[in-house]
Design a protein around this nucleic acid. Structure first.
Length: 677
DNA sequence: CAGCCTCGAGTTCT
DNA sequence: CTCGAGGCTG
């Protein structure tokens, strides 16, 4: 009996080892010692043994990747990325690429090299390995938080469950792209068509929806692929992008099939031209080329903006086909701030998976630039594959008597004379019915007061019936009025009333944003409510007080002053206060504002710090909600003085309000700031 | 004052 | 996602 167990254990371990090895060979070296048939046979054998002997369970077993694990096993599906997943700055022109290269070269004195990789058109994924084992696979989501799709990702053969080799970092995140080879995509669609289902629009969408299928065995059958391109973590065993790729390959991953390490425009452009010509020969879709600064230390000098790394750019191939449709009608919409937006209504046309009926023309400048006439044949593309955009007009199909488009001179809603400010036309009437309705729609919207059940359509109906003429009417809306709206019955009416009532609990910050003061969005609202703890102090604030907030200048402060000087707005705020909406910051907010040493404060550095780089210091300050400037100005609270400091210190000493800190005190502040958090 | 970055505002469809 | 405006840096 004892021997028997020992034998089984040995057998299981052998099978696991062999399968992992085969798997690696098959998918990375393009050769295999074992046929698919044998591979499956061994896999099945292992599965049966493991099922009979659960005591030998091991999360790294190759069987788990084919989805035999109990799906109820998952913990929560949402997962925060430890390192933010950025998107890439992209460009369609070589000229812009040259500007980019010149720009980054300005901030870097040493010689730069670049790595060019193919940009696979798939779904971004963040693979988390702890001590060499795959533990999570998280979709990009919004860059900070994604969905854990580990069960499905385990079925992907080109992703190792255990990294090859030894001494792997304790924690790493590997970034890659999951995609579906074109051939497989066509097969899946052929099958779907036969069984009467709608075919998928393109391989990318298919890969994306495949990752979300609940049944991992189905996912396994679809044979997704994955390539990886970067590693995040501490003390990584390489210091260039090129080495990172080689390391990834040694760990058992697939990397971009073609990689170029180079220095000059000429080399980069040659790579771009080559692949722009030959991309169709590849068995998968690519939508461009990614160009990255090779050296990690140069990457960290360049750093990141809020959205992208400054050290990388995607050169995208022009979207393949433009879809032609016809301009049927031109509508002018009035936004909540009075901006008039022209929207083209076109013959419905299917473009990469969705039917497009309307497309924005932004403003008059855009219409003139493209040169659109009534009845024109419009060529559409999809910006980022979601929002349709007019690329150009098919001039050949223009009718001889086609008339050019003249922008409106009066508001389509209230007939007021429009005012032109820069490129935009505004309706100046702040009582304009259309603007008014838009304001209500904004007020109830998800990001503002988030009143569920009352969306744009509902507001429109209520507005047209005269039940909802201003924001404040919301809070005296009676059930009997709601019941007069099509499709509203007892149950819905009750829930709407309840949701309106509940919205009174929203924070001051949300309420302020919901008012819709021009130029005051979510971010500025937040800043304002942190500095001015109730509405009264905001109304009474003068310009210098307002502009002392980073991000608020003359225009925004003027807009705020103007808003509260208009009678209707004053009345509105008064009524909302009576209804019990929040017009002061919560206790938590007040405490945060008063006691955090870093949050909301601005720093300036001079001289060299001994315990960290300036870049690191900057990141720490920003992480804790502070700001870092590089030149002396009136918004600075602290100057941190290091070795060999420069003239900035002298300039700061002339300004009485700036506190001078040594490095030690700065570090203490940081420590304290971390504790508060 | 140019150039960069961030924010606000408007938009599409499932 | 995209465009333009506003704010800030150098």
């Amino acid at each position: 009996m004892k021997n028997d167990r020992k034998y089984i254990k040995e057998k299981i371990s052998q099978l696991r080892k062999k399968l992992l090895e085969y798997n690696y060979q098959y998918y990375t070296m393009d050769t295999s010692e074992v046929s698919d048939y044998n591979f499956d046979k061994k896999l099945r054998e292992l599965f049966l043994l493991e099922k009979e002997h659960p005591e030998f369970y091991d999360p790294s077993s190759p069987t788990i990747r084919i989805g035999v694990e109990d799906p109820t096993h998952y913990s929560s599906i949402y997962y925060y990325h430890k390192y933010k997943m950025y998107s890439l700055q992209n460009t369609y022109s070589k000229k812009e690429l040259m500007t980019w290269k010149k720009r980054i070269q300005k901030s870097i004195s040493s010689s730069l090299s670049f790595v060019c990789e193919l940009k696979y058109d798939g779904v971004s994924i963040n693979l988390i390995y702890k001590n060499g084992f795959l533990t999570h696979a998280v979709t990009r989501g919004n860059g900070k938080k994604g969905e854990n799709v580990i069960e499905n990702v385990r079925t992907i053969q080109s992703i190792p469950i255990k990294l090859i080799g030894e001494n792997h970092p304790a924690y790493i995140e590997i970034r890659g792209e999951i995609f579906l080879p074109i051939k497989k995509f066509l097969e899946i669609n052929a099958k779907r068509t036969i069984s009467g289902k709608n075919p998928y629009a393109n391989p990318r969408n298919t890969a994306s929806s495949t990752l979300k299928i609940q049944n991992s065995k189905e996912v396994y059958k679809r044979t997704l692929s994955c390539i990886v391109y970067s590693v995040m973590g501490n003390n990584l065993p390489f210091d260039t992008q090129y080495q990172a790729l080689q390391t990834l390959r040694n760990w058992g991953f697939e990397i971009s099939e073609k990689v170029l390490l180079c220095k000059t425009y000429k080399e980069i452009f040659h790579f771009l031209d080559y692949w722009s010509q030959w991309k169709h020969q590849l068995p998968y879709q690519i939508d461009g080329i990614v160009i990255k600064v090779n050296e990690h230390h140069n990457q960290s000098i360049l750093g990141y903006t809020n959205k992208y790394p400054r050290w990388a750019i995607a050169y995208k191939f022009r979207p393949k086909k433009l879809s032609e449709t016809k301009l049927l009608n031109l509508k002018f919409q009035v936004g909540r701030t009075g901006i008039i937006t022209p929207v083209a209504e076109v013959i419905p046309k299917k473009i990469s998976g969705t039917i497009v009926k309307r497309v924005t023309l932004y403003n008059d400048h855009f219409i003139q630039k493209i040169g659109i006439h009534y009845g024109d044949a419009l060529l559409l593309e999809k910006g980022g594959d979601i929002i349709p955009k007019v690329a150009k007009v098919n001039i050949k199909k223009r009718l001889i008597n086609a008339s050019p488009i003249y922008f409106l001179t009066t508001c389509p809603s209230c007939r007021s004379h429009l005012i032109k400010k820069n490129e935009l036309f505004y309706c100046p009437n702040h009582l304009c019915p259309s603007q008014n309705m838009r304001k209500i729609q904004h007020f109830v919207s998800e990001r503002a007061m988030n009143i569920k059940g009352i969306g744009n359509e509902m507001v429109k109906k209520l507005y047209q019936k005269g039940f909802l003429c201003s924001i404040s009417d919301l809070y005296q809306l009676k059930k009997e009025k709601l019941l007069q709206i099509d499709g509203v019955k007892e149950k819905l009416a009750d829930s709407l009333i309840k949701n309106i009532e509940n919205s009174k609990d929203n924070s001051y910050q949300r309420v302020l944003y919901a008012l819709g003061i021009p130029h005051v969005g979510e971010y500025i609202s937040k800043k304002l409510t942190e500095k001015f703890l109730n509405l009264n102090s905001l109304i009474q604030a003068d310009e210098p007080q307002l502009t002392s907030i980073p991000g608020i200048g003359k225009k925004i402060s003027e807009s705020i002053k103007t808003y509260f000087s208009i009678n209707e707005n004053k009345k509105l705020v008064e009524i909302l206060m009576k209804h019990g909406l929040n017009f002061s910051s919560s206790y938590k907010n007040i405490v945060k504002n008063q006691f955090s040493p870093i949050e909301g404060k601005s720093f300036l550095f001079t001289g060299r710090l001994s315990s960290m780089t300036r870049n690191k210091a900057k990141k720490l300050v920003e992480l804790l909600g502070g700001r870092v400037f590089h030149t002396v100005n009136n918004k600075i609270h602290f100057i941190v003085v290091g070795k060999n400091f420069g003239s900035k210190l002298e300039k700061c000493m002339k300004k009485n309000h700036i506190k001078i800190l040594t490095e030690e005190i700065f570090i203490k502040l940081i420590e304290q700031g971390k504790k508060e958090k």
